[in-house]
Design a protein around this nucleic acid. Sequence first.
DNA 1: ACCTGAACACCGTTCAAGT
DNA 2: ACCTGAACACCGTTCAAGT
Lengths: 230, 230
Amino acid sequence: MSFTSVWLREPRKPSGPGRSREEIVAAAVELLDQEGLDGLSMRKLGARLSAGATSLYWYVATKDELLELAYDQVWGEMAVVDPDEVGWRDALSALAHSMRQVILRHPWSGDLIGRLPALGPNALHVADRMRRMFKAAGFEGSVIDFASSTLTAYVFGMTIPEIAWNAAMGQTRYDADEMRATVRKAAADFPEMLESVDLDVYEDPQAVRELCFDFGLVSVLDGLERRLAT
Amino acid sequence: MSFTSVWLREPRKPSGPGRSREEIVAAAVELLDQEGLDGLSMRKLGARLSAGATSLYWYVATKDELLELAYDQVWGEMAVVDPDEVGWRDALSALAHSMRQVILRHPWSGDLIGRLPALGPNALHVADRMRRMFKAAGFEGSVIDFASSTLTAYVFGMTIPEIAWNAAMGQTRYDADEMRATVRKAAADFPEMLESVDLDVYEDPQAVRELCFDFGLVSVLDGLERRLAT
DNA sequence: ACCTGAACACCGTTCAAGT
DNA sequence: ACCTGAACACCGTTCAAGT
């Protein structure tokens, strides 16, 4: 069985006098937030904790394990509301928006989604809550899993490219005209596409992305709700 | 303007007597297919072309540019059908399935989706065709973009985790009971979740994923179709 | 115009050795 | 039990030098 994960190993003993795993993970998240996925190296992280570069290997088997740990921290920030209070659709909608916001807040997590197993307690908690929401809606059996996968896929699939966009645009003064020119150049060989692409989009891309996310979310929820009728 | 891409630079001069960019990209795709994203290094690729490791920099400015080039090759494998022949829904459905299959065939491309700009001719062609399908359905203006984004997000968000699953499972003999035990262990603290998760899933995960993808796809298309009514 | 090798500034990880 | 430094086997990229 080659499938491994930090979460499938024996739980850690309570931390002794030395550094703690929590401390290391917290520092890793901080470094990731500041410098991104490529900015995290064991040497840099060690330096931040004023430790030798290789001391961390006492607490963590591998860099990937450390990333799994950091990744689960992100899931811990996602907000769940009780479907009994607001209804299943609003609960799912709020969760979807929260997932998007949290990922945008930790852009490095976008590179980890789907690459790393999400088996940490926080990830499981969110998955459990989403499942309950679909159950409250009336879904049953494996359709609960299908519906959860569908919604999660939509949110992640929509948010991951947003990160790349933010990264590319973040470090430059944004100019709508220049951007339009770039797009026109890139799509020069697709006249039909240019004619149908709405270039007003580049006036306020932030707002348009929000609109787009809502449009898709409503569509996905509508489509799922329709499964209940039949 | 810090946003850069191979596709936004001046087109290349026709290849002279030396190696060609096409040759290099083809070799890169081959290496990626065989050894994955981490398996591609400029040194290894150079060796494959019996060239010095750094010779490639004559044809390609950077490794990321090479990846952009290879990524667009993948888009070139996606199959589009004419909406006039089969109707917009079937055309979109076929395209979605094709996108999934192609990505699963080139697992490394999953790590690139959303991280790299998809501005190559093949990617643009697919985007253009998808847009036409939505146009044929009756969508207009920026809603065409929203609908395209929604469907693409779904397909990518669903397929990316499949790759990780395949990678984890591919190298081990698959045992349904063992897998169930692993899941039970991981979710030990979530009794409600365990009770709602359908553990029969692990009898034939391949078939279940297919089912799940279809379920979500139908839902997304239903939800989008509903936007036309209002 | 095309290709080379040496060199630079990095990586993750192992391991014997220290306290 | 915890931490260290040296060492290994890699990276991407630059650049002066060759043909």
